[in-house]
Amino acid sequence: MNRIIVEQEEVFLQDESVFFTEIPNSLVLHVKGNVCLALTSIHHMEVYLEKGSHFLLEAFVFMKNQTSKIVFHNEDDVVLDFHLSCLYEGENTLEVNSLVDKERVRNYIRVRSVERFGSLLIKATGEILENTRDAFYLEDIQSLTTHQERVKIIPNLLVSSNEAICNHNATITHVREEELFYLRGLGIEEEKATQLIKDGFLKSILQIEEIKK
């Protein structure tokens, strides 16, 4: 996989696997054919998936007092497989939007977030418009936090088509007291025990995704 520092604000990708180590604050991406992209940061991205494309987007990002937005535009016969694993500090907002008004579109959008210290607002919106035919849309958002009130997930499914299967799952998980008790019972400080559990949550998600691939 090629490792690239992206400097321009518009990038065309066709039948390739790339790893963007750095991207500009605003990026427009055009995807054609089979493309696999890995990212370590997201600020504002518009992604255009051309007809027949299959796009695997894997992002592992650290957010700190950040607002990020990613918008997917789908053409006919598109498969989008998007995994975002996010660790955050401070106040953050993450928006993921997907617009579908074509035929035979498959969107799988999975977001996993783990709090270090701070808050996160996740807005995930799938707009399945009237012209859509034979589409599948999945939005699966999971968040682990020590303070439930610091995480807010707003999942939106705006479905105007009768020919689409749409699913969404939003879960906010608290660090379990039993796990903390178990780790502290081995002599580990509460703060370190909490960190172990949170890091473990993220690692286990990554392991599962790896096995799936």
């Binding site: 039993e178 796990e179 008790f181 178990y182 780790l183 502290r184 019972g185 081995l186 002599g187 580990i188 400080e189 509460e190 172990l196 559990i197 890091d199 473990g200 949550f201 993220l202 690692k203 286990s204 998600i205 392991q207």
Partner: peptide, 23 residues
């Protein structure tokens, strides 16, 4: 607290040990 007691040398083997994914 629990951490202090464990550091003093107490160790509990639970009936149903807790699973911790990713650790």
């Amino acid at each position: 607290n629990t951490t202090d007691v464990a550091r003093e040398g107490m160790f509990l083997v639970m009936q149903n040990p807790i699973e911790i994914a990713g650790v």
